[in-house]
Design a protein around this nucleic acid. Structure first.
Lengths: 173, 173
DNA sequence: AATATATTTGCATAAATTTTCATTATATAC
DNA sequence: GTATATAATGAAAATTTATGCAAATATATT
């Protein structure tokens, strides 16, 4: 039953999970080559080759750009605007969490409060993650409603949101 | 006088002009490789190698991304957001500079290139400044002609335009 | 003007990325 | 279940992109 077992393992660490992990790693802002990303994916238990990774990145529209400091960095589509020339800063580390105030769950809804004016920007960042767990967002001026897919746990959503709002961790743990 | 001649040519087609041309070509959205871009640049009279082009793109933070249709496209930093899957948003502040591509001066004229559709909006913003230095603007779809008053220096005009296009400084190198 | 300093560039090559091809897995229909 | 079509994947080749280095050019200083 060797083959069977292997196939089960592959089923667990499937494409969807891998894609999600790639998003997480890339949004961290510290990936400068596919080999590096591959390394990290393998450390997370994913088994794939660089060829597959290249195809994933192509489909996900993840791009490699100069980081303004002599190196390169991989970025998620929506995050690209942060890299616009003129912002001396690195890639994602800056503001997304600056406007964050609180987060709350109720059923399949998640309500995020922000400082006035920040809701739109943060909602865009959430959309940029393009997570399966997030069905959509609606942003006002200081509130974001995140509509989740059924069967997605709070924990799962939290770990996704952590990518753009690092301070969530401190606030909730 | 061979060397002399060459240096004169290089002076004419200098880095600044090349950078600008690259922006124009890339914003056209039909570049899928550096060799293709190199080809077009050469057709425009620029003489450079792929190595230089690679370094230009790195500095300009131009990125290559999957085009969602099996191929790749090079994109300008600001354009990156166009590649995202469409979601409905409430409020989102977009800097007026989002559509800005390049700026050039010739005598009392200033020509601003924008991404398609942005010229009108940016021209409105320029008009709104109601600056004495700006006599008037004429906008097409992706180009704005700004007519300046005599005796107004480029620097002066630049510093005025910076109010609505903060990234001008870096963008024009 | 001459010298020193920094920047830009091309060439050759290295490194990274993409694609082709063959194979295996997954889903669909019967 | 078996057969057929579709999609995913790895290995290696092909292509594309990045870089070390030296020469050329531009910039600043005296």
């Amino acid at each position: 039953m060797r083959l069977q077992e292997i196939s089960i393992l592959k089923g667990v660490k499937n494409k969807t999970a891998r894609i999600q992990k790639i998003k997480e790693l890339v949004s961290g802002g510290a990936i400068d080559s596919q080999s590096r990303l591959l390394e990290l994916l393998r450390q997370s238990g994913f088994d794939l080759t660089q060829a597959t990774l290249s195809r994933d990145l192509k489909r996900m529209r993840i791009a490699k750009v100069g980081d303004g400091n002599g190196g390169y960095v991989y970025i998620l589509p929506e995050s690209a605007r942060n890299t616009a020339a003129g912002h001396v800063h690195g890639i994602h580390r800056t503001a997304p969490s600056a406007g964050f105030v609180s987060i709350d769950f109720s059923g399949q809804f998640c309500v995020i409060k922000t400082r006035p004016g920040y809701a739109g920007g943060i909602a865009l960042d959430i959309d940029a993650l393009d997570s399966h767990a997030v069905m959509g967002t609606i942003a006002g001026d200081d509130t974001i409603l995140v509509i989740l897919r059924e069967n997605e746990s709070k924990q799962q959503v939290m770990s996704i949101l952590k990518n753009i709002i690092p301070s969530i961790e401190e606030k909730t743990e």
